[in-house]
Amino acid sequence: MPKQLESILLLDDNYSTNFIHKKFIAYANCAKNVVDFQSGIDALEYLKIPENPIPELIFIDINMPIMSAWEFLENYSELEREDKDNAVIILLTTSLSPKDEEKAANIGQINGIWLKPLSEEKINAIIQKYFEIND
């Protein structure tokens, strides 16, 4: 039985994608709580509220209108939350471009880039890689 996280945040402008990912997370049974947003602005609004916990794992779609993953991360780093750096941040994309990879490599907050869509296996692998390695 893999480790169960307190909370996961999903950020993708496509409602179906969020829905599908939620389903896989449920199958993997790896989180007690999953929140999902279709825009970075909404996600930030949620994270600004001190009562809402900083998720242990955040999945962000790279290409989103209005606010891309990069801009979301900039805003995220300006959040006045002490525990914000504890979150594992994974970027998601349908196709991996070297440009995005390079960009991500230069941003310390990002733990990795994974291909969309997630699957039960991918989620388990992610949990194992980022959360169970020291256990």
Binding site: D12, D13, N14, Y15, S16, T17, Q38, D61, N63, M64, P65, I66, S68
Partner: peptide
């Protein structure tokens, strides 16, 4: 185009 087109 790529930047602005959303999946939703």
């Amino acid at each position: 185009l790529y930047k602005t087109l959303g999946n939703n």
